[in-house]
Design a protein around this nucleic acid. Sequence first.
DNA 1: TGTACATCAGTGAACGCGCGTTCACTGATGTAC
DNA 2: TGTACATCAGTGAACGCGCGTTCACTGATGTAC
Lengths: 230, 230
Amino acid sequence: MSPAARTYHHGDLRRALIEEGLQLARRGGPSAVTLREATRAVGVSPNAAYRHFTDLDDLVRAVATEAQLALARAINERVAAMPTGLPADEASIERLRRVGLAYIDFARAEPGWFEVAFSTQDHQPSEGIVTLGDEVVAPFQLLLDTLDEMVEAGALDAGRRPFAEWACWSAVHGFADIAVHGPVRWQPAPVIDALAASVVEAAITGVRGEPATAAPAAAAAAGSGAHNSG
Amino acid sequence: MSPAARTYHHGDLRRALIEEGLQLARRGGPSAVTLREATRAVGVSPNAAYRHFTDLDDLVRAVATEAQLALARAINERVAAMPTGLPADEASIERLRRVGLAYIDFARAEPGWFEVAFSTQDHQPSEGIVTLGDEVVAPFQLLLDTLDEMVEAGALDAGRRPFAEWACWSAVHGFADIAVHGPVRWQPAPVIDALAASVVEAAITGVRGEPATAAPAAAAAAGSGAHNSG
DNA sequence: TGTACATCAGTGAACGCGCGTTCACTGATGTAC
DNA sequence: TGTACATCAGTGAACGCGCGTTCACTGATGTAC
């Protein structure tokens, strides 16, 4: 128990409720986060929560922010594990590939956090930038940076840069949703891996206007597997 | 009131509850479909529903089937309105474009139906085919047919056909989700139109491995608009 | 150092809500003779 | 054609549930003198 965490009675009830909210969201998504369940788990009366949150939505937003940070962390880890020594253009493409695959894999590994991270954002008609509490949501910022880097490295025509974030996000988000809540859910993990690699490769090709020069082994395997059409 | 609909007391309570369920889902998605609200709206006691449905989930599945059919209808209408006289390969690409845009526009126009249509499917680890009540879900079948036609027309390499349905579905589904539940929701309609066109064009390019030869005016406009990156 | 006081994090009980589902029943419909 | 009967679609009341939120309160902590 850190010194900063020690306050009056409980220690740090606000923090404890957010942590408990994360556990609830982990298993059941945003709708599983309830004040009664969170306070019950912490061992405190239901209305104690109102000393730290104005209402249920306030708690859910705090939980969502944490979930978004967890997603950004997962993406950063995957990007950090990149092989070194690649030419700048190939490196920037590989980075985009890793951002996409990390997004999908996070959704598969933590569907509850994925759902709460996505479903809770600011309700404001801003510039289309994805914000929560007036801050650009971390994972989205990573995507923007990655695409800008591709332009700088010559891996993406500047004329193709506009809207590229929406094409990329749509593809990986859609597959994540299909893999978590849709029919792909019932497939064995290796099949989902192959589908994910294939979807990400198509997204990269889609924004660049041509296939990536050096697709990784996983994507190549995806292209030769069995498929489901008649 | 058709003669077939006339039965004992109410007329056709099963049908009436499904219709009411559709109205509820329209405004609030699957979770808004409740037995109490549906029976209340029809003017019947809550437990009357149990003469026609085994439980709540049974009603929701019936509603979901209707919503999927409505989506398939919207797609078919957009495809039927295609200009004639195009070469076979261009026509097949145009058809895919229309399938994608119709999917997105249906989600935007009827978010509640879109949600219930997507979220309710069979829970079975089958061949990856999307089914409900053991029938392939209609909109998905339309996508499979469209891609097969592209191969026949020479607009899609046979080697790129495997998994193509997942890349296409992921892109348009992801954008639909972002446009309905995500941050794009707060943008004015013309902006969403442009983003949608851009996303669909990227998806087509992604599966084909090269841009479509004759992109429509809407997609060209999308590429020249303002964008949101730094 | 000791005491009076203000602060405020938590308690306990209760509110009203809407839900799915079950029970024993009623009464309209269709059918056999 | 008339009557007895079986069927079954609907009723009315009640159950237990978990929820968010509000109320008046208690009692531990920190602070001023």
